[in-house]
Design a protein around this nucleic acid. Sequence first.
DNA 1: CCTTGGCACTCGATTGTACCGAGTGCTGAC
DNA 2: GTCAGCACTCGGTACAATCGAGTGCCAAGG
Lengths: 360, 360
Amino acid sequence: MLDARKSAILNKVVTEHIATAQPVGSAHVVRDPLIDVSPATVRSDMAALERDGYLTHPHTSAGRVPTDKGYRFFVDQLSPPALDPAGEEQVQDFFARAHGELERVLRDTSKLLSQLTDYAAVVVPPTHDTLTVRSSLLVRIAPRAALIVLVLSNGAVDRHSVEIDESTTDDQLERAGARLAALLAGRTAGEVEQVVTSGAGAAPGAGAGGTPPAPPAVPAAVDCEAAVDALVAACCREIAGRQLPSQDTDEVYVGGAARMAEQFPAVQTVREVLSILEQSFVVVSLIRDVLAQGQSVSIGTEHGLAPLAECSLVVAPYEVADEVVGTIGVLGPTRMNYSQALAAVAVVSQHLGRQLAAGS
Amino acid sequence: MLDARKSAILNKVVTEHIATAQPVGSAHVVRDPLIDVSPATVRSDMAALERDGYLTHPHTSAGRVPTDKGYRFFVDQLSPPALDPAGEEQVQDFFARAHGELERVLRDTSKLLSQLTDYAAVVVPPTHDTLTVRSSLLVRIAPRAALIVLVLSNGAVDRHSVEIDESTTDDQLERAGARLAALLAGRTAGEVEQVVTSGAGAAPGAGAGGTPPAPPAVPAAVDCEAAVDALVAACCREIAGRQLPSQDTDEVYVGGAARMAEQFPAVQTVREVLSILEQSFVVVSLIRDVLAQGQSVSIGTEHGLAPLAECSLVVAPYEVADEVVGTIGVLGPTRMNYSQALAAVAVVSQHLGRQLAAGS
DNA sequence: CCTTGGCACTCGATTGTACCGAGTGCTGAC
DNA sequence: GTCAGCACTCGGTACAATCGAGTGCCAAGG
């Protein structure tokens, strides 16, 4: 597509612009030992690159700046980058020390990633699909509400509330709890869903398509045992339901958002970017979209979000037991240090996966 | 201290400066109908106010700007402010709708408070001291680690991990779990602590003063029942220990941090403020300090944090069952709208307390 | 003694002008 | 195709002039 010299020039423009944040002119480009031609030649090549959409001009008599397409070319031909030794050590250290609650580990991981790259970092927590239920508990917390607590195989705790009928006796609740414990032990949330839809009485059935699922409620018990059955079914539905995309629970850990303040001269831009970062739902779906396209980098306007037009996102999934369970990412300006970000994201995602597999 | 006219002038300067963010001159001040003197008189009064430390001068030939002391005077003589009807309705709406997990409610509350005021908002979650344990569960999550899960009376779930000896049998664990359940049910964390220090075998004893408490570990069991005893004691210690100030778990919900970006012209300031907001520990202790001094507003340099010299913090505790359990706050520039912030914080803290008492 | 109009003075902000220099595009020669 | 040379562009800086909001002080009047 691009001959060797043009490609070299484009690369030089990109790296130089990343380093200096300034438009780069032909004189700067020829300073690169790999480019052994005169400025005039470089100029004509740069004009061609501009015609092809790789570069732009802020105005006449200014140097060139890469377009999103230019960055894209640069990133695609980047050799798989390695993290610098200092960073590598930092990651090692971190995960050697990391322990305790899942949430804490994830939050700290986002901080680590942000420190490594000097940009904002995002950690999307693992879905529970690969985790099994180790233990469960059903407790009444109000006359008409009960809580299911699940301890998962990695030590995380999941929690769902179900509406119950006021007439439900403590005894019934206890029996339902016992049944539930037996039913859930060793299962994943996905398997629970299967149990629900296959047998186990009051399956959702008809209304599954367009209409929103009714809130789980248990009808007044006539037969005692039937009430217990219904309660168990409601609990299962609730647990399985949480995994559905209807969840607006989308949690996400953002670290180093403050660093974005330095990246953009315009206060307005900073404000918009930070605002987006506060809406976890938007962040999650953004990352999901990028990953769905098989990309690991999204540059400028490639994703649709207007306020992030001046940002790039570098993502990597992390795996537990060969299954993708979550994602981490770095958000920086389009003129970010891509190789560093790619390296950091790759290394951290690997370590994080291993860590979670170990059971934190 | 200040005669009526000086006081009026100071008030006018403060309100005007809050509204316009500009230094305000004598001409602006006399526009106030309450001040019926000439600009020259105002000028001499302002000079006096400056001598007394209530106002400053960016430079000669500029208007006056309030100092921290000036703001302090203004805030202290502010009549207890009421929230505007629109805001009031928003709060009503919010708490009528609020439901679900504790964390979600708190996070959303921080967003609400931020929306009401247009500044950043902070919610410090309730300590568990007034909550009782409704149910508990002890599960092994790794060969050498177990997890205590507590369901609290308001439906929240608390979780602590304890180190256990590898030789501990599942049977022992189960018995310890049963003992623990009986011991904890209906108790608050504070009461658990009392149980630990009073009887129950392996109390910390000597090392309680200066040295950090040893990590909970259970020695290899010789006698089976003794091992169970020790395990129970370790669990209790862990639960009680969490309430000690040694906790660096200090969680905090920050909403609307992005709004700070617009409040300061200097990017550096924005960066520093956001940075502070990301360190939950700092935020928590800051709020604690302010409250400990019986203040509800901290202005500029009154708290010691240099990066927040241009910020003010408005806080209010919230109560459940007449006990202060947590705090909410608003962080804005020193020239923030204090009456609005005070009103919002007061109203929201009241509603939040009521909401939590109801059992979310 | 407090208040006030008058007045000189200060100093940031704005505007205008000139100039510099980094950078481009083009052209004609090799 | 490459390159030296050249005219041209245009943002950035430096400097001066001007403007105006605001002060401090003083002398006169209640």
